[in-house]
C-alpha cells in the first residue's frame, strides 16, 4: 500500500484542483455553490454520461482524461439565471465548454509541466470520443446544484 501513497497524493491533489475549479466556476457566475457528494469508483468499462459533456485530455506525467458532464436542464437553468435569453444547443455547449475550460485552466496552472492539459472538447449526447484508460478505475465526483446532479469523472493512468 505504501508505494501507492505517492501517486495517490498526486491524484488527490489533482482531483481537489478539479473540484475547486468547479466550485470556482459556480462562484464566478454568481449562483449558489454546488454541493460535492461522496466520490466513488467506476469500472473502466463503464462510463456515466449526461446530456452535455466537456472532455479534457491529460498527458505528460499522468495520462487519461477528465470530463464534466451534466443534464441539459441544469445548463438551461444556469444560462437563464445568467440573464441569457436564448438556450440553444450551441449556447449550452458553450457553457459546458466554459466549465471544462475553467477546470482545465486551473489544472494547467496548478500542475505546470507535469501535466499537459488539452483544450476541452464539448460533446452533446453520447460521445464516441471519450477514451478512458483501460486498466484504471475512474473516480466519480458527484456535484449537486439545485435539483440537478452533474459529475466530474477523473480517469488517470
Amino acid at each position: 500500500m505504501k508505494s501507492e501513497t505517492l501517486s495517490q497524493n498526486l491524484d488527490q491533489e489533482a482531483i481537489e484542483v478539479f473540484i475547486d475549479s468547479l466550485a470556482h466556476f459556480y462562484r464566478q457566475i454568481g449562483v449558489d455553490e454546488a454541493q460535492i457528494g461522496v466520490p466513488y469508483l467506476l469500472d473502466s468499462n463503464k462510463t456515466i454520461i449526461s446530456d452535455f459533456t466537456g472532455i479534457i485530455g491529460v498527458s505528460g506525467k499522468r495520462k487519461g482524461c477528465v470530463y464534466y458532464t451534466c443534464p441539459k436542464a441544469m445548463l438551461s437553468y444556469i444560462l437563464l439565471a445568467m440573464g441569457e435569453k436564448e438556450v440553444s444547443s450551441s449556447y449550452l455547449c458553450d457553457l459546458v465548454g466554459e466549465i471544462a475550460n475553467t477546470i482545465a485552466g486551473n489544472a494547467r496552472k496548478a500542475f505546470g509541466s507535469d501535466f499537459m492539459i488539452s483544450v476541452p472538447v464539448v460533446v452533446q449526447g453520447k460521445p464516441e470520443r471519450i477514451q478512458l484508460p483501460e486498466s484504471t478505475r475512474s473516480v466519480v465526483i458527484p456535484a449537486k446544484w439545485k435539483f440537478y446532479e452533474s459529475i466530474i469523472v477523473v480517469a488517470l493512468e
Binding site: C93, D94, G97, E98, N101, V119, P120
Partner: peptide, 13 residues
C-alpha cells in the same frame, strides 16, 4: 474559430 473560447473571453469577469 472556437465559439467556446470566444464566449469565454467575452464572459471573463
Amino acid at each position: 474559430d472556437s465559439t467556446v473560447i470566444r464566449r469565454r473571453i467575452e464572459r471573463t469577469h
